[in-house]
């Protein structure tokens, strides 16, 4: 692993002098056996996967597993990747989103409210409650949105992807993306407004 790190720094300093190689080029280099390319791709794309997964799942450990899984799929697809056909990041966002959705569906009955007793090996209710408490208001509101709206809002407003790219990630039209983000944002504002009143935040404000 040490050799891997040092060789990647040399590539990185070279590439800073010239133009940064595209994700496409790096994936091609990795397929040809270049280990340093994997390091740069991880630095570049790993945090994006993690960010999306954290907002989709609201849990760091699960989001890390999803990120590792998504990146694994990237390494495996490298030899068959057709350069210029699709954006690597779009493909990876799509894979990450699908993994998150699978994860949410699999773990649905396992969520805090539905679990009467802690089982052996699973996080205790106290741990789960602490997890919940650590979430910011935005996260709690996002988790109340329907899946597709949540995806669209995260990609648009947290990842700041342009609508055509979101359309590519979600496999829908640009119009559908616009409608989902608009409805999602309205719903979020409503949830947060309700929550503020419920928590008495309004009294504290001026």
């Amino acid at each position: 692993m040490e050799a891997l790190t040092s060789s990647s720094t040399s590539i990185r300093s070279q590439s800073r002098a010239a133009d940064m190689p595209s994700d496409d080029t790096l994936l091609g280099l990795f397929a040809q056996g270049d280990a340093a390319a994997a390091r740069i791709l991880t630095d570049r794309l790993g945090p994006r996967c993690l960010s999306v997964a954290m907002r989709m799942l609201g849990n760091r450990a699960e989001a890390e597993d999803v990120t590792q899984d998504a990146m694994m799929r990237l390494w495996k697809v490298a030899p068959d990747w057709v350069s210029g056909q699709a954006k690597v990041s779009t493909w990876l966002y799509r894979v990450t989103m699908n993994l998150c959705v699978d994860h949410l569906r699999k773990n649905k009955p396992d969520r805090l409210a539905d679990v009467p007793e802690p089982e052996d090996g699973s996080p205790s209710v106290a741990d789960r409650m602490q997890d919940e408490a650590r979430k910011d208001a935005l996260q709690l509101a996002l988790e109340q949105l329907p899946e597709r709206q949540r995806q669209a809002v995260i990609l648009r407003h947290i990842e700041e992807l342009p609508n055509p790219e979101i359309a590519g990630v979600m496999g829908i039209s640009v119009e559908a993306v616009e409608s989902l983000t608009a409805r999602g944002k309205r719903a979020l504002a409503g949830i947060l407004a309700g929550r503020r009143e419920e928590l008495g935040y309004d009294d504290d404000r001026r």
């Binding site: 891997l4 990795f30 056996g33 280990a35 945090p47 960010s51 890390e64 990120t67 590792q68 490298a78």
Partner: peptide, 23 residues
């Protein structure tokens, strides 16, 4: 936005290395 922890970076790069060697 969250950063990759060192642990996760190592996990991802270990996977990459394994795939690369298999290829």
């Amino acid at each position: 936005r969250p950063l990759l922890s060192d642990d996760l970076t190592v996990r991802i790069l270990t996977d990459a290395e394994q795939v690369r060697l298999n290829q």
